[in-house]
Nucleic acid binder design. Structure first.
Lengths: 232, 232
DNA sequence: CGTCCTTTTGAACATTGTCAAACACTGTGG
DNA sequence: CCACAGTGTTTGACAATGTTCAAAAGGACG
């Protein structure tokens, strides 16, 4: 098991508590594959033939309508994505593309559904994962409806600050245009929002962000557990 | 079982495929209760002590931040709400209030979690329900980010039209201010959006909506399965 | 009839998006 | 090494969209 290419995956929340037998059955038909940057992995509307697990690299989930496109989320290793389509045997609601060179494990959706019906440990893990994703999306929705773009950016920066171990200085992990799309605005608007946040203790130089006055930013952003603590 | 107050619930997707024994255990400590209109049932941030099942009436899910409020969804009988908080034993992300006089079954979350671990039929149903809710929320998010307010209203009307059995004339099921909040805009903006849709085959008189020219409205709204078919 | 609430309308305003141009950065090929 | 193209970012002017505030109009209900 340890020298299997799927060793890294075994410890994921989703797979950790399933039986060895189930895990072997699940990964028997699975395969590990490398993809170059900027490659579209999934087109929304396609049938969910595979559960995707990102092992290394980075993947962007996005959606389109009527010629418009919006970034929905960025997936970091090691984690799965678009589990809901797999368990419901329904078409993907989001498209996916690699941001950088990435390795993924593709597990046939059919196997996921079969083993989920037999392995209670796996079923429990799926429930937890789905509930977590669901709640994350609710937060995203609240964020979009209750805050304007400057407030969304301010809170986004505070969340990134937390992820980077509360250093006052950190790097944006995506291009600004992607950040803008993720936050539901245009690149031009993001640029102006960054300018506006100078008055609230934020300095930007390229992709380097410095939180000069943390208290001031918090006072402006009003972060809230039910909107910004994506952990639980 | 049939003359139990929980008979109506037994046939819900969530409970239909669990064993009789599990169902009895689940409902043993549950209780049916009536609530008047406009009563707040749940405050966001509270621990999820009970899984709520709406048996009759109507419930609105909403969220607040910094003195602002937004309507997130309307729950119709018979269905459960805020399942995710229950299974994760986490605080509610949304508040709930009755829109009209309603009857609800309250099931202790503790029991839901215990029985979910033992009854595979129940576990499967929870997974399906969570995946469905998750996908619905993704659609909501896409809707908010990819469409402007007129487009959101136009597609909302087409969805309501479908629900009402495609009669050309139907009633709004909620006050316009709630519809506005649900669609992410102000009541004033909704009023103007309705006016703008006159040019696209929509007539409004109070809460009565008539789709005068269905093709014209469709041409403007551009409804899309991955955004508007909340069924799967 | 009066009261309360919702809805509508108008005007002013704020926010966000669009378009065009300038600028910065990166990598390529001469 | 430099010129160059290509891409992403920033800025300014302007347009579109959405909000706020105030007031009027409409409905529900005692």
């Amino acid at each position: 098991m340890i020298d299997s290419p799927f060793g890294a995956v075994r410890h994921l929340d989703l797979f950790a508590r399933m039986s060895d037998e189930s895990f072997l059955r699940l990964t028997r038909a699975a395969y590990l594959q490398s993809f170059p940057a900027q490659l579209q992995l999934i087109a929304e509307g396609d049938p969910a033939d595979f559960l995707h697990v990102l092992v290394s690299g980075r993947v962007e989930l996005f959606s389109t309508w009527n010629g418009r496109e919006t970034s929905m989320a960025t997936v970091h290793p090691v984690s799965t994505f678009i589990l809901a389509a797999t368990v419901r045997d329904a078409p993907y609601l989001m498209s996916a593309r690699t941001v950088e060179k990435s390795r993924l494990i593709l597990i046939p959706s059919q196997d996921v559904r079969e083993i989920f019906e037999q392995d209670i440990g796996f079923a429990k893990a799926i429930v937890n994962e789905l509930a977590r994703c669901y709640r994350a999306t609710i937060r995203t929705s609240k964020n979009l409806k209750l805050r304007n773009s400057q407030e969304r950016l301010a809170n986004y920066l505070l969340r990134q600050l937390g992820k980077s171990g509360n250093r006052t200085r950190f790097e944006l992990l995506a291009e600004k245009r992607r950040v803008a799309s993720y936050l539901g605005m245009t690149p031009e608007n993001l640029s102006r929002a960054f300018n506006a946040l100078k008055a609230h203790g934020v300095e930007v130089d390229g992709s380097h962000v410095t939180i000069v006055d943390h208290d001031k930013l918090v006072a402006f952003a009003c972060p809230h557990a039910l909107l910004d603590d994506y952990a639980n």
